[in-house]
């Protein structure tokens, strides 16, 4: 794929795409300096369930400006109401900045890791009560109504994506119930996605003009993310495990 499409060309393609979408977004978008991509991210009409016609995913560009990841993480904290604790070992982290360094070559990269929203999620397989679920559109969630806090999903997750709530929680966001004794993780901002909005991290990055994370429907060949993952070779963490994550990484 990359063999026939040089990177420069692909980038240019994306730039063209950006201009096209900006134009479609209308004058207001340009006027307020907001870059927003709704392609594929539509609000589902009232009363309709999530559908397997969609497969939400993300593409993370590991070569992006490292400060982008702080933007994304603080947007997540603000949106979902986690963070601010004083116990690093027990405080929940829905998304975190991971740095890797190749032991032999010394090459380094820094990028965020969160729930990878696997197509074959081990957390869903092992959950004794069925509290770990994968929605029809591929978003992996914890049903805190029936989570008993056994933490087996945390044992099973290859990405350490989940946190156990070790302390009482107060002042939760109305759209994001969180409670002591249950397990939680990135929801891909399911409440926003259902309303046709972008996940908070992606939205915050777009607001500062960064395309470090692209969100969209991997099942829709015309979506920005689908075009991007077909233009570049992307990798998913521990692909060898066969869990088919929905989060792709470019540049590692």
């Amino acid at each position: 794929m990359t063999k026939t499409t040089p990177t420069a060309l692909a980038d240019e393609k994306i730039d063209t795409e950006r201009r096209r979408l900006l134009a479609a977004g209308g004058a207001v978008a340009v006027a307020t300096g907001i870059i927003l991509y709704g392609a594929g991210a539509g609000a589902r009409p009232k009363g309709q369930p999530a559908s397997s016609a969609q497969r939400w995913g993300m593409l993370i560009d590991t070569n992006a400006d490292p400060s982008d990841w702080d933007t994304a993480i603080s947007a997540c904290k603000r949106e979902q109401g986690w963070g601010g604790g004083n116990n690093p070992a027990t405080d929940p982290q829905w998304i975190r900045k991971v740095s890797i360094k190749n032991k032999s070559t010394g090459a380094q990269a820094t990028f965020p890791v969160m729930c990878q929203h696997c197509a074959n999620p081990p957390c869903v397989d092992v959950c004794p009560t069925g509290a770990s679920i994968k929605r029809a559109d591929g978003i992996v969630l914890v049903d805190k109504h029936i989570c008993i806090g056994c933490r087996y999903c945390m044992m099973a997750c290859p990405y350490s994506a989940r946190s156990f709530v070790h302390e009482p929680v107060h002042n939760q966001k109305p759209h994001m119930p969180r409670g002591m004794g249950t397990v939680e993780s990135c929801t891909m901002c399911v409440h926003r996605v259902d309303a046709g909005l972008l996940p908070a991290c992606v939205n915050a990055l777009n607001k500062k003009g960064s395309k470090a994370i692209i969100f969209g429907d991997l099942n829709n060949p015309d979506s920005e993310i689908s075009r991007a993952v077909s233009a570049h070779v992307t990798r998913r963490i521990r692909e060898d495990l066969g869990v088919e994550p929905g989060v792709h990484y470019k540049g590692i």
Binding site: V28, G38, P45, A195, L197
Partner: peptide, 15 residues
């Protein structure tokens, strides 16, 4: 009414 207005909706609401 959500049909076929998804992207527009997203942009308007997001804006």
């Amino acid at each position: 009414s959500g049909k076929n207005e998804h992207s527009e909706n997203a942009i308007t609401v997001g804006m």
